[in-house]
Computed example of a mutant assay.
Amino acid sequence: MFTGIITDIGEILAVKDEGTARHLTVACAYPADTIPLGASICHMGVCLTVTSLKEGSNHTVITVDASAETLARTTIGSWEEGRKVNLERALRIGDELGGHIVTGHVDGVAEIIGRDDKDGTASLVFRAPRELAKFIAEKGSVGLDGTSLTVNGVKDDTFTVTLIPHTLAVTTWGEAKVGDRVNLEVDMMARYSARLAEAKAEGY
């Protein structure tokens, strides 16, 4: 589990396709002695397992693997060497829940279709996959590239969020532009509420 509060911006050092999977080498600022093998770290909203790590001169290098299912549902298939990625360590008991509960299980990919910068903030408009749009509600929470954000408005399959200067500075959102594809995780409560309603309508 995660909170959607980004704690580091990592960099992809190497990408290697191995059959239907993808092997990623990532540099991060987390101390190596605080990351056990098998730890879960959220990369742009995707929960990935640390398979190896080593301490460098000014950063830690970890490796993670993405399966065929993960590649099909996320943007990882387009990641290249040099890409910056939002990172978050797994939530621990007693940690502050500053965002909302994020599982790191991406539901699909949304596209930025508008951006308006004003007074240091950025208002972004996204188009969600139609099958996921029903889970996105005004003033509800949404996970975008691992960041917990509040939905300002919804219209059909599009929705808007506003990013404050701090978020733009400490995440990859400062460089986001129209046409970019982003990992989308809908709110867990919305997903289960919708499923319960469907089950009731089906007589379960």
Rank of each mutant, 00 (worst) to 15 (best):
M1H: 11
I5T: 05
G10D: 02
L13A: 14
V15N: 09
K16P: 08
E18M: 13
T20I: 13
A21K: 12
R22I: 09
H23G: 03
A27S: 15
C28I: 11
A29L: 12
A29N: 13
D33V: 13
D33R: 13
I35W: 00
L37I: 15
I41N: 07
C42F: 01
G45A: 04
C47S: 13
C47T: 11
T49E: 04
T51P: 10
K54R: 15
G56L: 13
G56T: 12
S57H: 14
S57M: 15
V64G: 05
E69F: 02
T74P: 10
W79F: 10
G82E: 07
G82T: 09
K84F: 07
N86Q: 05
N86D: 03
L87R: 05
I93A: 12
G94I: 13
E96Q: 14
V106Y: 01
A110H: 04
A110M: 04
A110N: 08
I112A: 04
I112Q: 01
I113R: 11
I113E: 03
R115G: 03
K118V: 12
T121D: 01
L124P: 02
V125D: 08
A128N: 02
R130W: 11
L132H: 09
L132V: 08
A133K: 09
I136M: 02
I136H: 00
K139I: 06
G143P: 10
L144R: 02
D145C: 12
D145M: 13
D145Y: 06
G146N: 09
T147P: 08
T147K: 07
T150I: 09
T150H: 07
D156W: 02
D156F: 04
F159W: 02
V161R: 03
T162N: 09
T167H: 01
T167N: 04
V170A: 06
T171K: 03
W173D: 02
E175L: 13
E175W: 10
A176F: 01
K177C: 10
G179P: 09
G179D: 06
D180S: 05
D180W: 02
D180I: 08
V186M: 01
D187T: 00
M188Y: 13
R191F: 00
R195D: 06
L196N: 07
E198R: 05
K200F: 08
A201M: 13
G203Y: 00
Y204K: 14
